[in-house]
């Protein structure tokens, strides 16, 4: 197990290196630069700026400098936010996005799995159709509309929750719901189809022949076998949700990490682009690793390679 994890961590470093390299050169290949914006800067000042940020040096020097500093977990100063480093941006934004993301993940998984199970157990009955209509709505309604609807009804009409801002736990409910809608719907559909498949298996009939009730069969035999596709989806999903969403954060006025993904690109904020990309990649690779480890626990037939035994 330990050998497996260290091997995987090594692979992660290699993937990370590739990601850094590709992003670095893609970014440079895009036309424009951080200082070629609307406001024309005098050439002398631009020269000074380039010198300060090291943009005047040959690309390979820049590249290796960057690699060295990234290895030291230093993403450099932000081009756009004066006086702030990219590390500052991440340190400020990520805890907020992480909290919000965790909340939505919990909502999405618990309600999504529950809906999927109810739908599968009542296959082709009204509960199934109701759950699936709900799921289709969740998938097809864009998050900004979902957010506005929630704000209108739950905040303005009913006054249960504040409309926006990021202050107390109450403030987190609406954005978490809006963010959870899509993954929840997706998880519900995944769980349903996977449950339906599992419920048709011979071992479910065996469990029934033992005299177990439908509830016991579902809890003890069906869910564990049906949950794998959901776990697979959770890997990329959690990386995505934990780093925040541009749309939701804008609508609810949340100081999260999500907005940096979009604004840093329009700003040609090289160091921020690199910083958030690397950070996101690390989260993604870690969550995929966690998912793979979880597989081994859920399904004993999946042996983690590297270790001699799957125990």
């Amino acid at each position: 197990m330990l050998r497996y994890i260290s091997k995987r961590l090594l692979y992660m470093l290699m993937s990370l290196f590739l990601i850094v390299t590709v992003t670095f050169f893609l970014m440079r290949a895009a036309p424009g630069g951080p200082f070629s914006s609307e406001k024309q800067v005098p050439p002398e000042i631009e020269k000074n700026l380039n010198e300060y940020y090291g943009l005047d040096r040959p690309w390979y020097i820049q590249y290796f400098d960057y690699l060295v500093s990234i290895a030291k977990w230093d993403f450099g100063p932000s081009f756009k936010y004066k006086g702030q480093t990219v590390n500052d941006l991440i340190n400020e934004g990520f805890p907020v996005s992480f909290f919000l993301g965790m909340e939505s993940l919990l909502i999405a998984i618990s309600i999504g799995v529950l809906l999927g199970i109810i739908a599968a157990l009542n296959h082709n009955k009204w509960q199934d159709y109701a759950a699936m209509v709900f799921a289709v709505l969740g998938i097809s309604v864009p998050s900004f509309i979902m957010a506005s609807i929630l704000q209108y009804f739950l905040a303005i009409k009913l006054g249960w929750f504040p409309v926006a801002r990021w202050e107390s736990l109450q403030h987190t409910v609406l954005p978490a719901l809006a963010l959870a809608a899509m993954p929840m719907a997706f998880i519900a559909r995944l769980t349903r189809s996977s449950m339906l498949e599992v419920l048709g298996n011979d071992y479910i009939r065996t469990a029934k022949a033992k005299g177990l009730s439908q509830g016991q069969i579902t809890v003890k035999h069906a869910i564990r076998n049906a949950i794998l596709p959901v776990v697979t989806y959770l890997g990329p999903l959690s990386a995505q949700i934990l780093t925040g969403s541009f749309v939701i954060e804008k609508i609810f006025g949340i100081p999260g990490l999500g907005s940096h993904f979009v604004t840093s690109i329009t700003n040609r904020d090289y160091t921020t682009i690199m910083g958030v990309t690397v950070f996101y990649s690390i989260l993604l690779l870690l969550s995929v690793l966690l998912v793979d480890i979880a597989y081994g626990f859920i399904d004993p037939r999946i042996k983690l390679a590297g270790g001699k035994k799957g125990e």
């Binding site: 298996n201 011979d202 071992y203 009939r205 065996t206 469990a207 003890k220 035999h221 564990r224 076998n225 859920i298 399904d299 004993p300 037939r301």
Partner: peptide
């Protein structure tokens, strides 16, 4: 079919 009649995860 004994291959499919037992729960693989139990």
């Amino acid at each position: 079919d004994p291959m499919t009649s037992l729960n693989p995860t139990m």
